[in-house]
Amino acid sequence: MDTVDHTEFAELLAVYSLDALPPDEVSVLESHLADCPRCRGELESLRDVAALLGNSGVSAPQGTWDRIASELGLPPADQPVPVLAFQSRRRPPVWRNAAIAVAAVVIVVLGLLSYRVVNLDNRVGQLQASLGEQGVGQLVNQAIENPASRDVQLTAKTSSARAHVVVLPDGTAYWVDDDFATLPAGRTYQLWALASGKVVSLGVLGPDPHDVPFRVEPTMTLLMVTAEPAGGTPVPTTSVVAQGAVSV
């Protein structure tokens, strides 16, 4: 196996460790893994990182164990106790080290990624209703002048179009303005956020948005805007017009 092979497969290993490799590429990589201990070793390391991401402090629902136990049944009659693969190895077991090292890792509890995702749909409408139209412009100005506020620029990939958003420390945010083209009748810009790996709608902005309030939650890492049919859609149906990283 030469270096080029490892370089090519190294990128796939990280994707594979997250179960994010498309099926048609999985077989190619798995064929390589079967013959390459080096890549298998790297994959194991990456799996450890992924396991940390997935580790959490939730509790399983009541009754789950009872349902599992009810399906265990009786041991097969006259069946010898199987010898597990690791028992048959001559190499001494590593479980002691593994247990110690992994115990520290897996017992991680999980404040990690303790995401609190709230119902975000229609937040724009709710905020607008509570603020009243007349007060929004004034609030936007106050937010811009607030030294604790942060500016977020949403930029386009294929054009110079950009939008200006201001975010206050408490998560209150305003779509200030943009240089997007005004959409025709029947179309609206819609704001989305990436929150804990999920794309959630923050609401519709209108065909020519300005001074629109919304809320940014701590779980959100990215704002995106798309052009959608008037009234908005539950999931994005068009390409992202512009996007920008955000945090609270």
Binding site: G57, S59, V200
Partner: peptide
Amino acid sequence: DARSTASGQYD
């Protein structure tokens, strides 16, 4: 997901 993401909450 689009309507409510509350189910992702962690203790």
